[in-house]
Amino acid sequence: MKATKKYQLSKLERDERRLGFLLLAPAALLLAAVVVYPIAELLTNSLYSFRLTRPGYRFIGLENFTFALFEDDRFLHSVLNTAILIGVTVPGALVVGLGLALLANQPFTVKWPVRLGLLLPWALPLVFAGLIFRWFFDYRQGFVNWLIELAGLTPPQWLSDPRLAFVALCVAIVWKSSSFMALILLAGLQTIPKSLYEAAEVDGASRFQQFVEITLPMLKPAIVVALIFRTITAIQTFDIPYAMTNGGPGTATETMAMYIHKTTIDFLDLGYGSALATLMFLISIAATSIYLRHTRRDTGRG
Protein backbone atom coordinates (compact mmCIF):
# COMPACT_ATOMS: atom_id res chain seq x y z
CA MET A 1 0.00 0.00 0.00
CA LYS A 2 2.76 2.45 0.94
CA ALA A 3 4.60 1.91 -2.29
CA THR A 4 1.57 2.82 -4.36
CA LYS A 5 0.85 5.92 -2.26
CA LYS A 6 4.28 7.35 -2.93
CA TYR A 7 3.56 7.79 -6.62
CA GLN A 8 0.24 9.41 -7.33
CA LEU A 9 -1.08 9.14 -10.88
CA SER A 10 -2.20 12.41 -12.40
CA LYS A 11 -5.79 12.73 -13.57
CA LEU A 12 -4.67 12.49 -17.18
CA GLU A 13 -2.70 9.31 -16.50
CA ARG A 14 -5.62 7.74 -14.66
CA ASP A 15 -7.97 8.60 -17.52
CA GLU A 16 -5.57 7.08 -19.99
CA ARG A 17 -5.23 3.97 -17.93
CA ARG A 18 -8.99 3.64 -17.68
CA LEU A 19 -9.30 4.08 -21.43
CA GLY A 20 -6.63 1.45 -21.92
CA PHE A 21 -8.52 -1.08 -19.83
CA LEU A 22 -11.75 -0.17 -21.57
CA LEU A 23 -10.19 -0.78 -24.96
CA LEU A 24 -8.73 -4.09 -23.80
CA ALA A 25 -11.99 -5.26 -22.24
CA PRO A 26 -13.71 -6.60 -25.38
CA ALA A 27 -10.70 -8.71 -26.35
CA ALA A 28 -10.26 -9.93 -22.78
CA LEU A 29 -13.96 -10.83 -22.48
CA LEU A 30 -13.91 -12.62 -25.83
CA LEU A 31 -10.83 -14.59 -24.80
CA ALA A 32 -12.42 -15.43 -21.47
CA ALA A 33 -15.55 -16.66 -23.22
CA VAL A 34 -13.86 -18.79 -25.86
CA VAL A 35 -10.67 -19.90 -24.09
CA VAL A 36 -10.79 -19.53 -20.32
CA TYR A 37 -14.38 -20.67 -19.79
CA PRO A 38 -14.17 -23.90 -21.84
CA ILE A 39 -10.86 -24.84 -20.23
CA ALA A 40 -12.26 -24.21 -16.74
CA GLU A 41 -15.33 -26.26 -17.63
CA LEU A 42 -13.12 -29.06 -18.97
CA LEU A 43 -10.99 -29.13 -15.81
CA THR A 44 -14.09 -29.16 -13.59
CA ASN A 45 -15.82 -31.95 -15.53
CA SER A 46 -12.67 -34.06 -15.44
CA LEU A 47 -13.08 -34.37 -11.65
CA TYR A 48 -16.66 -35.63 -11.87
CA SER A 49 -18.44 -38.81 -12.79
CA PHE A 50 -20.57 -37.29 -15.55
CA ARG A 51 -22.16 -39.65 -17.99
CA LEU A 52 -25.23 -38.64 -19.96
CA THR A 53 -26.50 -42.21 -20.13
CA ARG A 54 -26.61 -42.45 -16.35
CA PRO A 55 -28.19 -40.06 -13.90
CA GLY A 56 -26.02 -37.94 -11.64
CA TYR A 57 -23.04 -35.60 -11.55
CA ARG A 58 -20.80 -36.79 -8.73
CA PHE A 59 -17.42 -35.47 -7.57
CA ILE A 60 -14.84 -38.27 -7.70
CA GLY A 61 -11.56 -36.38 -7.37
CA LEU A 62 -8.75 -37.74 -9.52
CA GLU A 63 -10.37 -41.14 -10.15
CA ASN A 64 -10.79 -40.47 -13.90
CA PHE A 65 -7.07 -39.66 -14.14
CA THR A 66 -5.86 -42.66 -12.18
CA PHE A 67 -8.07 -44.93 -14.28
CA ALA A 68 -6.69 -43.44 -17.50
CA LEU A 69 -3.05 -43.64 -16.45
CA PHE A 70 -2.98 -46.95 -14.60
CA GLU A 71 -5.88 -49.10 -15.76
CA ASP A 72 -7.04 -48.08 -19.21
CA ASP A 73 -4.76 -49.95 -21.64
CA ARG A 74 -6.67 -48.51 -24.51
CA PHE A 75 -5.78 -44.92 -23.60
CA LEU A 76 -2.09 -45.75 -23.14
CA HIS A 77 -2.18 -47.58 -26.44
CA SER A 78 -3.69 -44.52 -28.13
CA VAL A 79 -0.91 -42.35 -26.65
CA LEU A 80 1.66 -44.77 -28.06
CA ASN A 81 -0.04 -44.71 -31.48
CA THR A 82 -0.03 -40.92 -31.45
CA ALA A 83 3.63 -40.91 -30.46
CA ILE A 84 4.48 -43.21 -33.38
CA LEU A 85 2.62 -40.94 -35.79
CA ILE A 86 4.43 -37.88 -34.38
CA GLY A 87 7.81 -39.62 -34.47
CA VAL A 88 7.41 -40.56 -38.13
CA THR A 89 5.35 -37.80 -39.67
CA VAL A 90 6.94 -34.73 -38.07
CA PRO A 91 10.50 -35.49 -39.26
CA GLY A 92 9.02 -36.94 -42.46
CA ALA A 93 7.10 -33.78 -43.22
CA LEU A 94 10.18 -31.70 -42.37
CA VAL A 95 12.40 -33.55 -44.84
CA VAL A 96 9.81 -33.61 -47.63
CA GLY A 97 8.76 -30.03 -46.85
CA LEU A 98 12.37 -28.82 -46.94
CA GLY A 99 12.85 -30.49 -50.30
CA LEU A 100 9.71 -28.87 -51.67
CA ALA A 101 10.73 -25.47 -50.27
CA LEU A 102 14.19 -25.70 -51.85
CA LEU A 103 12.56 -26.66 -55.14
CA ALA A 104 10.11 -23.77 -54.96
CA ASN A 105 12.97 -21.40 -54.11
CA GLN A 106 14.76 -22.17 -57.38
CA PRO A 107 14.83 -19.21 -59.76
CA PHE A 108 12.20 -20.60 -62.14
CA THR A 109 10.98 -18.05 -64.62
CA VAL A 110 7.39 -19.24 -64.15
CA LYS A 111 6.86 -19.67 -60.45
CA TRP A 112 3.13 -20.45 -60.16
CA PRO A 113 3.06 -24.17 -61.09
CA VAL A 114 5.40 -25.12 -58.26
CA ARG A 115 3.67 -22.83 -55.78
CA LEU A 116 0.24 -24.14 -56.75
CA GLY A 117 1.51 -27.68 -56.28
CA LEU A 118 2.69 -26.63 -52.84
CA LEU A 119 -0.60 -25.05 -51.85
CA LEU A 120 -3.04 -27.68 -53.12
CA PRO A 121 -2.49 -30.42 -50.52
CA TRP A 122 -2.56 -27.75 -47.82
CA ALA A 123 -5.84 -26.31 -49.06
CA LEU A 124 -7.55 -29.71 -49.18
CA PRO A 125 -9.70 -30.50 -46.10
CA LEU A 126 -8.16 -33.23 -43.93
CA VAL A 127 -11.12 -35.59 -44.20
CA PHE A 128 -10.98 -35.42 -47.99
CA ALA A 129 -7.31 -36.30 -47.89
CA GLY A 130 -8.19 -39.24 -45.63
CA LEU A 131 -10.94 -40.46 -47.95
CA ILE A 132 -8.73 -40.10 -51.02
CA PHE A 133 -5.95 -42.12 -49.40
CA ARG A 134 -8.40 -44.74 -48.15
CA TRP A 135 -9.42 -45.32 -51.74
CA PHE A 136 -5.75 -45.19 -52.76
CA PHE A 137 -4.93 -48.05 -50.39
CA ASP A 138 -8.19 -49.99 -50.87
CA TYR A 139 -7.61 -53.73 -51.08
CA ARG A 140 -9.51 -54.43 -54.28
CA GLN A 141 -10.06 -51.09 -55.98
CA GLY A 142 -7.04 -49.14 -54.80
CA PHE A 143 -4.40 -47.53 -56.96
CA VAL A 144 -1.50 -48.84 -54.88
CA ASN A 145 -2.62 -52.47 -55.11
CA TRP A 146 -3.29 -52.02 -58.81
CA LEU A 147 0.37 -51.05 -59.27
CA ILE A 148 1.50 -53.95 -57.09
CA GLU A 149 -0.59 -56.38 -59.16
CA LEU A 150 0.86 -54.92 -62.36
CA ALA A 151 4.31 -55.69 -60.99
CA GLY A 152 3.15 -59.27 -60.50
CA LEU A 153 3.22 -59.24 -56.70
CA THR A 154 0.54 -60.25 -54.20
CA PRO A 155 -1.33 -57.16 -53.05
CA PRO A 156 -1.33 -56.68 -49.25
CA GLN A 157 -4.28 -55.56 -47.14
CA TRP A 158 -3.02 -52.12 -46.29
CA LEU A 159 -5.77 -51.01 -43.96
CA SER A 160 -6.44 -54.21 -42.05
CA ASP A 161 -2.86 -55.01 -41.09
CA PRO A 162 -1.74 -52.83 -38.17
CA ARG A 163 1.79 -52.21 -39.47
CA LEU A 164 0.78 -51.54 -43.05
CA ALA A 165 -2.08 -49.36 -41.82
CA PHE A 166 0.50 -47.21 -40.01
CA VAL A 167 2.57 -47.00 -43.19
CA ALA A 168 -0.50 -45.91 -45.16
CA LEU A 169 -1.47 -43.36 -42.50
CA CYS A 170 2.05 -41.92 -42.39
CA VAL A 171 2.19 -41.56 -46.16
CA ALA A 172 -1.15 -39.72 -46.14
CA ILE A 173 -0.20 -37.46 -43.23
CA VAL A 174 3.24 -36.60 -44.63
CA TRP A 175 1.69 -35.82 -48.02
CA LYS A 176 -0.90 -33.60 -46.40
CA SER A 177 1.32 -31.77 -43.93
CA SER A 178 4.60 -31.32 -45.77
CA SER A 179 3.19 -28.52 -47.90
CA PHE A 180 2.44 -26.49 -44.80
CA MET A 181 6.03 -27.10 -43.64
CA ALA A 182 7.27 -26.08 -47.07
CA LEU A 183 5.34 -22.81 -46.98
CA ILE A 184 6.91 -21.77 -43.69
CA LEU A 185 10.37 -22.90 -44.79
CA LEU A 186 10.03 -21.13 -48.13
CA ALA A 187 9.29 -17.88 -46.29
CA GLY A 188 12.42 -18.53 -44.21
CA LEU A 189 14.55 -19.28 -47.28
CA GLN A 190 13.59 -16.00 -48.91
CA THR A 191 14.90 -13.99 -45.95
CA ILE A 192 18.44 -15.36 -46.38
CA PRO A 193 20.53 -12.64 -48.07
CA LYS A 194 21.89 -13.60 -51.49
CA SER A 195 25.20 -11.93 -50.61
CA LEU A 196 26.07 -14.79 -48.25
CA TYR A 197 25.93 -17.30 -51.08
CA GLU A 198 27.91 -14.98 -53.37
CA ALA A 199 30.61 -14.64 -50.74
CA ALA A 200 30.69 -18.42 -50.21
CA GLU A 201 31.04 -18.97 -53.94
CA VAL A 202 33.98 -16.56 -54.05
CA ASP A 203 35.57 -18.60 -51.25
CA GLY A 204 35.05 -21.74 -53.33
CA ALA A 205 32.38 -23.47 -51.21
CA SER A 206 30.45 -26.28 -52.90
CA ARG A 207 26.65 -26.26 -53.18
CA PHE A 208 26.44 -28.84 -50.39
CA GLN A 209 28.74 -26.80 -48.13
CA GLN A 210 26.60 -23.73 -48.81
CA PHE A 211 23.50 -25.70 -47.82
CA VAL A 212 25.04 -27.01 -44.57
CA GLU A 213 26.90 -23.85 -43.55
CA ILE A 214 24.49 -21.13 -44.67
CA THR A 215 21.01 -22.40 -45.50
CA LEU A 216 20.44 -24.70 -42.53
CA PRO A 217 21.70 -22.36 -39.77
CA MET A 218 19.88 -19.36 -41.25
CA LEU A 219 16.73 -21.47 -41.61
CA LYS A 220 16.78 -22.75 -38.05
CA PRO A 221 14.22 -20.28 -36.62
CA ALA A 222 11.78 -21.14 -39.42
CA ILE A 223 12.39 -24.86 -38.89
CA VAL A 224 11.64 -24.54 -35.18
CA VAL A 225 8.44 -22.63 -35.83
CA ALA A 226 7.36 -25.20 -38.40
CA LEU A 227 8.17 -28.05 -36.03
CA ILE A 228 6.16 -26.47 -33.20
CA PHE A 229 3.08 -26.07 -35.36
CA ARG A 230 3.41 -29.52 -36.90
CA THR A 231 4.00 -31.27 -33.58
CA ILE A 232 0.99 -29.63 -31.94
CA THR A 233 -1.28 -30.56 -34.82
CA ALA A 234 0.25 -34.05 -34.85
CA ILE A 235 -0.61 -34.52 -31.16
CA GLN A 236 -4.21 -33.80 -32.15
CA THR A 237 -4.18 -36.15 -35.19
CA PHE A 238 -7.77 -37.15 -35.86
CA ASP A 239 -9.22 -36.62 -39.33
CA ILE A 240 -6.97 -38.72 -41.55
CA PRO A 241 -6.96 -41.91 -39.41
CA TYR A 242 -10.69 -41.39 -38.73
CA ALA A 243 -11.44 -41.38 -42.44
CA MET A 244 -8.89 -44.02 -43.45
CA THR A 245 -9.04 -46.74 -40.79
CA ASN A 246 -11.48 -45.44 -38.15
CA GLY A 247 -8.88 -46.71 -35.67
CA GLY A 248 -8.92 -50.21 -37.13
CA PRO A 249 -8.09 -53.01 -37.31
CA GLY A 250 -9.62 -53.21 -33.84
CA THR A 251 -8.11 -50.23 -32.07
CA ALA A 252 -4.63 -50.67 -33.56
CA THR A 253 -4.43 -47.22 -35.17
CA GLU A 254 -6.57 -45.24 -32.74
CA THR A 255 -5.04 -41.90 -31.74
CA MET A 256 -5.60 -39.96 -28.52
CA ALA A 257 -7.98 -37.50 -30.17
CA MET A 258 -10.00 -40.37 -31.68
CA TYR A 259 -10.36 -42.09 -28.31
CA ILE A 260 -11.43 -38.82 -26.70
CA HIS A 261 -13.97 -38.31 -29.48
CA LYS A 262 -15.31 -41.82 -28.98
CA THR A 263 -15.55 -41.44 -25.21
CA THR A 264 -17.38 -38.12 -25.32
CA ILE A 265 -19.43 -38.19 -28.52
CA ASP A 266 -20.21 -41.91 -28.82
CA PHE A 267 -20.21 -43.13 -25.21
CA LEU A 268 -21.40 -39.76 -23.83
CA ASP A 269 -18.98 -40.11 -20.93
CA LEU A 270 -18.22 -36.43 -20.53
CA GLY A 271 -16.38 -36.77 -17.21
CA TYR A 272 -13.87 -39.35 -18.37
CA GLY A 273 -13.61 -37.71 -21.80
CA SER A 274 -12.73 -34.40 -20.12
CA ALA A 275 -10.02 -36.11 -18.09
CA LEU A 276 -8.53 -37.60 -21.26
CA ALA A 277 -8.73 -34.23 -23.00
CA THR A 278 -6.97 -32.62 -20.01
CA LEU A 279 -4.15 -35.14 -20.32
CA MET A 280 -3.82 -34.39 -24.02
CA PHE A 281 -3.80 -30.67 -23.21
CA LEU A 282 -0.94 -31.20 -20.73
CA ILE A 283 1.04 -33.17 -23.33
CA SER A 284 0.57 -30.33 -25.85
CA ILE A 285 1.74 -27.74 -23.32
CA ALA A 286 4.78 -29.85 -22.43
CA ALA A 287 5.75 -30.29 -26.10
CA THR A 288 5.36 -26.59 -26.81
CA SER A 289 7.38 -25.49 -23.80
CA ILE A 290 10.27 -27.77 -24.76
CA TYR A 291 10.41 -26.17 -28.19
CA LEU A 292 9.98 -22.66 -26.81
CA ARG A 293 12.78 -23.09 -24.28
CA HIS A 294 14.97 -24.25 -27.13
CA THR A 295 14.19 -21.19 -29.27
CA ARG A 296 14.62 -18.74 -26.37
CA ARG A 297 18.08 -20.08 -25.65
CA ASP A 298 18.83 -19.87 -29.31
CA THR A 299 17.84 -16.22 -29.75
CA GLY A 300 19.71 -15.35 -26.54
CA ARG A 301 22.88 -16.68 -28.02
CA GLY A 302 22.35 -15.02 -31.39
Partner: peptide, 11 residues
Protein backbone atom coordinates in the same frame (compact mmCIF):
# COMPACT_ATOMS: atom_id res chain seq x y z
CA UNK B 1 -13.61 -53.43 -32.48
CA UNK B 2 -12.72 -56.88 -31.17
CA UNK B 3 -14.50 -58.72 -33.99
CA UNK B 4 -12.86 -56.39 -36.48
CA UNK B 5 -9.41 -57.06 -35.00
CA UNK B 6 -10.19 -60.78 -34.97
CA UNK B 7 -11.30 -60.79 -38.63
CA UNK B 8 -8.21 -58.79 -39.58
CA UNK B 9 -6.11 -61.45 -37.85
CA UNK B 10 -4.48 -59.09 -35.35
CA UNK B 11 -6.18 -60.69 -32.36
Amino acid sequence: TNINAFLAGTR
